[in-house]
């Protein structure tokens, strides 16, 4: 059974798309990440044009992060001040990202940019999580405490001027690295169709020493706002948001996320981080292989919108 996507202008198998939403939703619920880094490549693989895939994942992420953020808000695990400062950088980053995406599309290097950033980002984050979680597992095996928040000296970037107190996160740091972090997340979100949760959560935990649960809650609020903004901006600048595609994805995704969250709660956090690290790293290797391997076809054809 197929359904016609009015913006992508092609029919897709509705259950395939629904199952993808379900599977990615399961993973995102389990690990507390948005799952955009999996969803976008999967959609492109099904034949959806990359521009439509990136833009239509944004409303999907807005829906799933809103659902998650509400739960964390009720439990009081969202630092709204921290989200606000991150957002001030994030919104500028999203706007810049949508413009950058339009530019890359014009010069024909969108594929390369997406592949390179995926490899670099996912490779680095995946490797980092892998080593950290293996160390944590080794520590618990030896009978030690699996600690993530290590007391220690503050890094140079936390001692910059414009210091702010974030009560919920129990930190007192310069606003500059927080704004920059927000900007980078917003930029990546718009260009790669990823929420940035898989970057933001580790960054908040390891760099700013925010408690894990508060990191996830705060990251969800940030994803919610940047992805809502990205939806509107992509619709306006590129006209590539497919409402039908997004709807099928978000129905599958929100259901999958609930089951994923339940599965995730039964696992030890360090094993969870190890699994996520492996997953992120394997996506990076897959994308990198495509960059280095000679392509099956050296030519590609892309339609040009508007006057050339």
């Amino acid at each position: 059974m197929t359904i016609y996507l009015p913006i992508a202008e092609l029919p897709v198998a509705i259950f395939t798309i629904f199952a993808m939403g379900l599977a990615v939703g399961f993973i995102s619920g389990m690990f507390g990440v948005g799952g955009g880094f999996l969803m976008t490549p999967l959609l492109i693989f099904t034949g959806v044009p990359p521009a439509v895939a990136v833009a239509s994942v944004s409303p999907y992420m807005a829906a799933s992060s809103f659902s998650g953020a509400l739960s964390y808000l009720r439990k009081g695990m969202v630092d709204l001040t921290l989200s606000g400062v991150l957002l001030s950088g994030g919104l500028v980053g999203t706007t810049a990202g949508v413009a950058l995406f339009a530019f890359l599309r014009r010069i024909g290097q969108v594929d390369l940019a997406i592949a390179l950033s995926y490899t670099a980002l996912l490779g680095a984050i995946g490797a980092m999580m892998l080593t950290e979680s293996v160390r944590a597992i080794a520590r618990t095996r030896r009978g030690g405490q699996p600690q993530v928040r290590r007391p220690g000296t503050h890094s140079w970037f936390m001692r910059l001027p414009l210091k702010m107190r974030f009560r919920r996160s129990r930190i007192y740091v310069s606003a500059i690295p927080v704004v920059v972090l927000g900007f980078v997340i917003g930029l990546l979100g718009a260009v790669l169709g990823v929420g940035g949760g898989f970057i933001l959560v580790p960054a908040l935990i390891y760099m700013l020493r925010v408690p894990t649960q508060t990191s996830v809650g705060t990251s969800l609020v940030l994803t919610l706002v940047t992805m809502t903004a990205a939806t509107v901006l992509h619709a306006q600048a590129n006209g590539t948001v497919d409402a039908v595609l997004a709807l099928v994805l978000m129905i599958g995704g929100t259901v999958g996320a609930q089951f994923g969250a339940r599965a995730g709660q039964t696992m030890r956090p360090e094993y969870l981080r190890l699994l996520l690290g492996l997953l992120v790293l394997s996506v990076a290797i897959r994308v990198a292989a495509d960059l280095v391997r000679p392509p099956a076809d050296a030519f590609i054809v892309a339609p040009v919108e508007g006057p050339p």
């Binding site: 409303p59 999907y60 807005a62 829906a63 799933s64 992060s65 809103f66 659902s67 998650g68 509400l70 739960s71 809502t228 939806t231 509107v232 901006l233 992509h234 619709a235 306006q236 948001v241 409402a243 997004a246 709807l247 978000m250 129905i251 929100t254 259901v255 996320a257 609930q258």
Partner: peptide, 17 residues
């Protein structure tokens, strides 16, 4: 159109929650 899609996705998220 973008605003409507964004609002629609927030409603779906809210309902799911």
């Amino acid at each position: 159109y973008g605003i409507s899609v964004a609002l629609g996705s927030l409603i779906v998220g809210f309902l799911a929650n």
